[in-house]
Every structure is written in structure tokens, then in C-alpha cells.
Design a protein around this nucleic acid. Structure first.
Length: 700
DNA sequence: GAGCACTGC
């Protein structure tokens, strides 16, 4: 690779816009700051609690919650809102009489971290007065737990049994500014619940939320009317801001737009290393490729100029990295070395690194966009929002005053960068979301009040897909039993439908294994280095039927080895992933039994396994183009040009008819996880879907 | 013969 040329005669020129107090941050984890955790003793804890900014708002918060149906708390990093507000509420009696205070988080890790911190502060055992629930883990005790932390996804599942969430007196929705799909669905549903349960209190908490738009969402004419009827309770939300406790972060912008942000990032790292006092550097790039080339450029520089940059400890960070390598970023740098973490968005919210003093922000991240017309989700590099930029900058001010180098101009930041990102619900396939609402009895999906409405096209497309799966009827109501059963299974409806069919066909044990494997990222060890060797090992499990059947062979081998980690290591299989497969599989078996499915093995009759897969994924059927030399397929439904991904066991095998699990779009559309089928099955499992196809594409 | 931002049930 060519050596980079430093732009503009050496280094980027930065201008300084003065000192800017930066907010944002991961409230969940950030409240458990190191200085708080490392001290002992009740009085010490008490003193620390009083030092948190939120402490002086205690009375105000309790008053607002008492008198308002909804209270919006805008709190910056380190304000203490997540750990303290539930305790304030409990002390004020909101958990009396067996009622429970709930606090939701978007991520499992945050739920665990925050709940154990709160249990420690209250001097109780986790799982008693303070508990938590995430998928696979329920540390709560009925009648004992007063404060319960949970993911918003778990709370949505709870609504399927108890639509009005009657055991909760207050529900605090934390990190609402992240606008995840679950958070948005939850907010829409909570607004509805409030109409039926005026005594329920909501606390919406977030770092950088546009509080006014959230407030207007929770305000409506009908609500004002209720206000008159419910004496003393204000329906219009209260808004309270709590300052953070982060350090000042000085922001620097480039004077001219940069053409290559990877090179710009690399030269900025070297600039910091030459000119700035010690302190670790965190760089935000978009993905694995960017990160790898930045790491490469830096290593080249170290070799060429050995002196200056040899003091750098360069660490990549992204979710696909093997666990051990990921953990390196948490270890402090050796004496005299400066740590440089080059990361994706994972360091923006999910992971918190201590000791970062300098942040370099490329201004971009990878974001998912869904096209309802083609029904394809794409991952594209897109500009971030001001809210994200502030969040990234805030990562530099956790231990002492820091600096953030933005690789874009101040003018761009002020004039062009959007204030907030597009909520996930407006960028996603809505199939799961629609069936969830249907199962909660929301019949008029198109009339549902969202904090941000998804496009009608995406909504209609989701309804179509669910109709074709036979889980919605002509009136868009859940069918019985299929629709209700699919809604109960905590996976994508197409997977759920596949499981239902497997119960009828007599291969549910196998299909549940396949469903578990498909629901985790990858069961293979990621190793770009030993690719050839890995491909060869993979052939041991490969079958002509396709990837799904290959998964069955891997699972079988794993069980026969006695679930051995050595076996996994030898076979390039990710041991942690396989443990997860076992866990998901167990949950699915329990769910299947609960909803009355038949658990049965097909004893090697793979044909019916492929039929069951077809029953869920018939919409992803593709036909190899006649006389195609390069493995070109066309989707039957949309005549999209697609290819088998080189990681598939069917790559270069190119069966005439295939079904894929998902598409990845790069220079071509690649099908990942592919299985060969007999086209006659398509009409068998989905006659309604295939009867109106063009004559040329009708399977015979 | 190529590459997967991040979550969650």
C-alpha cells in the first residue's frame, strides 16, 4: 500500500472555536464511574450520591412526578439520573403496596451494570428489593422487588401478558434519545396505556433529546380533556434539565473539508502524539475496512519513522473482533505508551473507555437504510448528527479536560449537520414491529401514534409480507393459531413461520437449531488471515443442500465433542457463539412447547428440513439465470440480480433454485446463508404468493 | 473469491 501524504504541508490545520461544554454520553454505564465504584462504606456512598448533580433536583423531580402524568428529564452524562431517580421514587413511596418502579435501558449490559450499582447503593442483595430482567436472566422476586431494571424489549414482551403493565407505578424510559425501535414502540404504547391508567407515571429520560418534540408527542387535545376530569394531575409533560458532570472538551475543526477521512485521522493521531501531553486517543471511523486500513497506515508510519510514533499502542475495536482482542482496549497502556483505539460506533454508546483525553471524529458512521419498494436493507456510510457528534466529543471529557478533533469544518457542523439522526423505525423493515403491535391488540396499525411515524410504504410492505406468511388475514387480523403463535416466538416472523411449519412437517428439533444459529451473528471464528485453512475445515461440515444443513452438522459435531471449546478451536468455530446457540435453542424449545408445537426430530430426513425453511422464506426464492457463467441469480419476486456470497458452501456450486436468508449489499447483492430447493415446493407452501407471477418465472 | 454499524426478544 502507498504511503500516505500528510495533507497541507504536514498536518491538518485546526481552528479552535473556544471552549465548549460537551454533554451526552452513556448515562447507563457512566453513572457507575470508577471513582464511585472503588470506594466502600455506606456513608461514603451517601456522600457520593449527594455530589451527583441530580441530587439537588430530588424534591423537584418528586413534585413533578406527583403532579404530572409524564416527566421528561434531560440529563447529561454523569448527572446520576439513571441510578438516583428510581431510588428517589422508592423513598417517596412509589413502590409501596407491592407496586414496582421500572427503569428500561436499550442494552443488556447497561441493565446489569446499573442494577448492581443501585443494589450496592441501597445495601441490598441484587435480585431482592432491586432486580433486573434481560433475555435469559430474571433476577427479580415477586412481591419483594421494588425497583426493576429491564431492557425495553423485555418490557414489550411483558405487555403481551399484561397489556396495561398493571404492576408498575412508574415507568422510566431511559436513553430515549437513542430512538431505538423498541423504545419508540414502547413510548407509543405507554401513551395509550396512560389513557386507561391515569395513575401510571412516566419518566422519559435522555441525554440530548429534543425535549419539546417528545413533549408534544405526549400532549393531545384528548389529554387536556382528561386533565379536567382527573383533578390535580397535569397531562402536559413537565420538562426538567439536569446538568452533567463531564469535563470541558475543547472542539477543533478542520479549516478545509478533508477528502479522505482515514488519512486525515491518521495524520491527526500523529499530530496529537507529537504536540499534545500524554492521554489516550479514541478515533471514530465507520467500519472494519476503514479501521484496518488506518491501523495499517499507522504501523507503516511506525516502521518508517520509528522515533515519533513508536510510543503508540494501536488497537482496533469493532463488534466482529474476537473477544480477547476486544478486551485489550480496556487494559491501561504500558508506561510511556499512548493508547490509540480506532473504533466503530460501538464506543459511542455500548462501550465506555476510561482514560480517553483526545477524540477524533470522522463525522461518519454506517447506518442501516431500508427500501420498502425493493424490500432490501442496506448498510451505508452516512454523515452523523450533531447529537452523535456531541456524544463522541463527550468521550474525551470523562477523566479530565480533553480535546475533540472534528474532521469536518465548523461551517458544516453548524449549517449542514442534522440535529438528530433519523429514528431507527424510519430506516427498518417493520415486519417484527407490526406483528408485535397486532399481538397487543392494536388493530389500526396505520393509525398508531408514533413518536416518529414510519413511512406508509414500509408499513404496507410489512402487512403484505405478514399476509403472505399467513399470519394476518384479509382484515389484517392475526390468524389463529398461526398468527398468535408467530407473535409468541421471539424471532423474525419468517423464522417463526419456519418453526411452525417444522412442527407440522416433523423436523422441529432441527429447525430450532437452525433458527438459533441464524439468530446470532456468526458461528465461525472471524479470521481474515487463515482464510484458506478455515475454508478447508469448513468443508468437513459442508453439504450439497446448503448452509442451513451445514449448521446442523456443526451443531452435531459440537454436541458429540461434549461441547468442547478445544473442538471449536480446531474447527474454526466460535465457542461463545455456540454457547449462545444452546441458550437460544433452549428458549425456543420452551416457547415451542408452551404454544403447543410438536418437538420432533426428522432423523436425517433433510428434505423436510428444506421444505420447512421454504415455508418461511419462500419470498427469498431465486432462480439461476439460464446460461449464466458468473452465477447470476434473479429473485423470483422482484427480478433483482443477486449472487451467492463466497462464504456460502454453495458458492460456485450454483444450484438452479435457491432460497436465501439475507442479502448483503456491497458492489453486488450477495445472498448469505443459502439452501437449494425444489421449485415445486414454492407453490405448495405459498400458493397465494406465487400464483400471480409472470409466466416465465413460475416454478414448474 | 469477498467481507458484516449497533442493539434486542
Amino acid at each position: 500500500m502507498a504511503r500516505w501524504t500528510p495533507p497541507q504541508g504536514g498536518y491538518l490545520k485546526m481552528n479552535v472555536d473556544g471552549r465548549v461544554q460537551v454533554g451526552g454520553g452513556c448515562a447507563g454505564i457512566s453513572c457507575v464511574a470508577r471513582d464511585e465504584v472503588e470506594s466502600f462504606g455506606y456513608s461514603n456512598i451517601e456522600r457520593q450520591k449527594q455530589r451527583l448533580p441530580v441530587y439537588k433536583y430530588r424534591t423537584a423531580i418528586l413534585y413533578l412526578v406527583e403532579t404530572h402524568a409524564t416527566t421528561i428529564i434531560v440529563g447529561e452524562t454523569g448527572s446520576g439520573k439513571t441510578t438516583q431517580i428510581p431510588q428517589f421514587l422508592k423513598e417517596a413511596g412509589w413502590a409501596d403496596g407491592g407496586r414496582v418502579i421500572a427503569c428500561t435501558q436499550p442494552r443488556r449490559l447497561a441493565v446489569q451494570a446499573v442494577s448492581s450499582r443501585v443494589a450496592e447503593e441501597m445495601g441490598v442483595k441484587l435480585g431482592e428489593e432491586v432486580g433486573y430482567t434481560i433475555r435469559f436472566e430474571d433476577f427479580t422476586k415477586n412481591g419483594v422487588t421494588m425497583i426493576k431494571f429491564l431492557t425495553d424489549g423485555v418490557l414489550l414482551r411483558e405487555m403481551m401478558d399484561d397489556p396495561l403493565l398493571t404492576k408498575y407505578s412508574v415507568i422510566m424510559v431511559d436513553e430515549a434519545h437513542e430512538r431505538s425501535i423498541s423504545t419508540d414502540i414502547l413510548l407509543g404504547l405507554l401513551k395509550k396505556i396512560q389513557r386507561r391508567r391515569p395513575e401510571l407515571r412516566l419518566v422519559i429520560s435522555s441525554a440530548t433529546i429534543e425535549a419539546k418534540s417528545m413533549s408534544s408527542f405526549f400532549t393531545s387535545k384528548r389529554r387536556r380533556q382528561m386533565e379536567d376530569e382527573t383533578v390535580g394531575l397535569k397531562m402536559e409533560p413537565a420538562i426538567l434539565s439536569v446538568e452533567g458532570r463531564g469535563f470541558t472538551v475543547q472542539i477543533q475543526y478542520v479549516e478545509e473539508p478533508v477528502s479522505n477521512y482515514i488519512q486525515a485521522a491518521v495524520s491527526t493521531i500523529l499530530l496529537i502524539n507529537d504536540q499534545e501531553p500524554m492521554g489516550d486517543i479514541l478515533v471514530f471511523l465507520t467500519g472494519q475496512d476503514d479501521i484496518d486500513s488506518a491501523v495499517h497506515l499507522l504501523h507503516e508510519d511506525i516502521q518508517n519513522r520509528s522515533k515519533n510514533s513508536s510510543g503508540l499502542l494501536i488497537l482496533p475495536l469493532y463488534s466482529g473482533l474476537p473477544r480477547a482482542e476486544q478486551e485489550l482496549v480496556f487494559a491501561p497502556a504500558p508506561r510511556g505508551k499512548r493508547k490509540v483505539v480506532i473504533s466503530t460506533n460501538i464506543a459511542e454508546t455500548s462501550l465506555t473507555l476510561e482514560g480517553i483525553v483526545y477524540v477524533i471524529d470522522s463525522g461518519f458512521s454506517k447506518q442501516r437504510f431500508y427500501n420498502p419498494i425493493s424490500d432490501i436493507e442496506n448498510l451505508v456510510v452516512a454523515p452523523i448528527s450533531k447529537a452523535s457528534a456531541r456524544q463522541r466529543a463527550g468521550r474525551a471529557g470523562r477523566v479530565r479536560p480533553g480535546k475533540c478533533y472534528r474532521l469536518y469544518t465548523e461551517e458544516y457542523f453548524v449549517k449542514e449537520m442534522p440535529n438528530e439522526g433519523i429514528p431507527e423505525i424510519q430506516r427498518s423493515n417493520l415486519v417484527s414491529c407490526v406483528i408485535q403491535l397486532k399481538s397487543l391488540g392494536i388493530d389500526n396499525i396505520l393509525g398508531f401514534e408514533w413518536p416518529a411515524s414510519p413511512s406508509p410504504e414500509a408499513m404496507v410492505r410489512a402487512l403484505e409480507v405478514l399476509y403472505s406468511l399467513g399470519v394476518l388475514d384479509d382484515d389484517a387480523k392475526l390468524t389463529s393459531p398461526d398468527g398468535f403463535q408467530v407473535a409468541e416466538i421471539p424471532l423474525d416472523p419468517m423464522i417463526a413461520k419456519m418453526i411452525l411449519s417444522s412442527s407440522q412437517l416433523g423436523c422441529s428439533e432441527e429447525i430450532i437449531t437452525i433458527a438459533a444459529v441464524l439468530s446470532i451473528q456468526s458461528i465461525w471464528v472471524s479470521s481474515r488471515g487463515a482464510q484458506k485453512e478455515m475454508d478447508e475445515v469448513k468443508l468437513r461440515f459442508a453439504t450439497a443442500e446448503g448452509d442451513h444443513v451445514t449448521f446442523l452438522n456443526v451443531y452435531k459435531g459440537f454436541l458429540q465433542s461434549g461441547k468442547s471449546s478445544q473442538w471449536c478451536y480446531r474447527n474454526f468455530v466460535n465457542y461463545h457463539a455456540m454457547k449462545k446457540v444452546l441458550e437460544v435453542r433452549e428458549q425456543l424449545r420452551r416457547t415451542a412447547q408452551r404454544i403447543g408445537l410438536v418437538l420432533k426430530s426428522c432423523e436425517g430426513d433433510i428434505l423436510i428440513v428444506r421444505k420447512a425453511i421454504t415455508a418461511g422464506f419462500f419470498a427469498n426464492a431465486c432462480n439461476l439465470e439460464a446460461y449464466s457463467h458468473n452465477g447470476k441469480y434473479k429473485t423470483i419476486r422482484g427480478s433483482q440480480e443477486v449472487y451467492i456470497h463466497p462464504s456460502s458452501v454453495l458458492f460456485r456450486v450454483n444450484p438452479k433454485w435457491v432460497i436465501y436468508h439475507s442479502l448483503v449489499s456491497t458492489d453486488k447483492q450477495y445472498m448469505r446463508n443459502v439452501i437449494s430447493i425444489d421449485p415445486s415446493w414454492l407453490r405448495e407452501v405459498a400458493p397465494h404468493f406465487y400464483q400471480h407471477q409472470r409466466p416465465s418465472s413460475i416454478p414448474h
